[in-house]
Structure formats: C-alpha cells, structure tokens
Computed example of a mutant assay.
Amino acid sequence: MFIAPNFTANQWKNLKLEQNEQDWQKAIDIFKSRIESRYIEPVEKLLEIEDELKPSERRFGFTILAINLLLMETIQAFKDGLETTDGQSKKVFKDFLKSSPHFSPYFTTDSQRETFYKAFRCGILHQGEIQSSALVWSIGELYERAEGMETLNRNAVHKAIKSDLEDYINGLRNPASESLRAKFRKKMDFLANRQEQVVN
C-alpha cells in the first residue's frame, strides 16, 4: 500500500533512519511528496483555473479552504507526533494557529483562534458553510477585521500554509532537530503500520 506517490509502507520500513542521513533526507522527500500530492497540488489547480477571473467571479473558495484547513491540522499532528487527532482536533488546530509565524499575527488571542476553529474549520468541514458573518475573498490581507466586518483571503491562506510547510520541512532536514524528527517518525511509522494492516 502506498503512503506517498510511488512509495509503499514496506519501503518506508526499510529505511535506515537510525544510522543513515541519506535515508533521512529520502524520508523527508517522501513526506513532502505525500503532502504536496494530497493537498498542495489540488489547490494549485483550482487557483490556476480561477486565475484569469475577476475576484467577484471566483467560486472555489470553500473547496480551497477546506483542503487547507485539513492541512493545518495535518501539519500540526506531525509536529506533535500525534498518531491521530481523534478528540484533539480543536487543540491541534488552535495550536497550529498559535505557533505558526505565518498565521499567529492574525490570531493573537485564544478567543480569535476559538472563533476561527468553530466558524471556519468546523463550519466548512462539517456544515459546508461558515458559521459566522465573515466573508471568504481572494484579495487583501490573510484575515481582516474592520468596521464590524471580517474577511478571510483564501489565496493568502494557501500561500501561508505553503510557507509553514516549507519551514517544517527545512526543520526536518536539519540533523540537529532530534525532537522534531522523532515526532515526525512516530507519525510516519503509525501511517505505514496502518497501511499494512489495511492490506492484511
């Protein structure tokens, strides 16, 4: 069973991560391929389709956001070494907003993070709509609060999540990042073992 394009769970288990830095770099490439193929590339295709349209004519905002909101939780689960986020989604999502240098400037209080989690993450993923009066747009700041109106720029969200992913990957590539790597490996080992169980 594949855990990334053209890479199986069994191949993952054969990596010599304890003694081989080259295999570590390969492991990180596998993760990068997994995330880009499942999250980044589909969003880029949607953005490309809408690129020539006027902002008022763009219609893929909710789909773009849904994918990126899932990716936020996914990245944080890897950072924390969580095998699953069952029963922890709120904490994991809010931790991402708080710790990410690309998102934290827009969500400086726990109340703002809580509201974003409920209105956007839960609203879009569970109800197919935002559970507030905030608007989804494709221009402007990532998140704007002005004169009683709130606006989220889904394009800026995607750009920021790509930067966060790049930061995380760069951290993993550093052999000195022992704790980060240990948590990453715990998560990947779990995914590989689960895929094998599905097959068997």
Rank of each mutant, 00 (worst) to 15 (best):
L46M: 10
R38H: 12
K16H: 11
E18R: 11
R34I: 09
K32Y: 02
S37F: 03
N10K: 12
T8W: 01
E48A: 15
N20L: 08
D29N: 15
R58S: 04
Q11N: 08
K45W: 09
E50I: 08
G61A: 04
I28S: 12
P55E: 03
E36F: 05
I28T: 06
D51K: 13
D51R: 14
D29G: 12
S33V: 00
D23E: 07
A27G: 08
L46H: 03
E50Q: 09
Q11S: 09
Q25H: 03
W12F: 07
P42R: 00
E21H: 11
N14T: 10
A9W: 07
K32T: 14
D23I: 01
F60C: 11
E44A: 01
E52Q: 14
Y39D: 01
G61P: 02
S33A: 11
I35A: 01
Q25R: 14
K32W: 09
F31E: 02
N10W: 09
R38A: 14
D23A: 07
S33E: 15
D23K: 09
A9F: 07
N14D: 10
I30S: 02
N10R: 10
R59E: 14
K54S: 14
K13W: 10
I40A: 04
I40H: 04
Q22L: 15
N20A: 05
L17R: 08
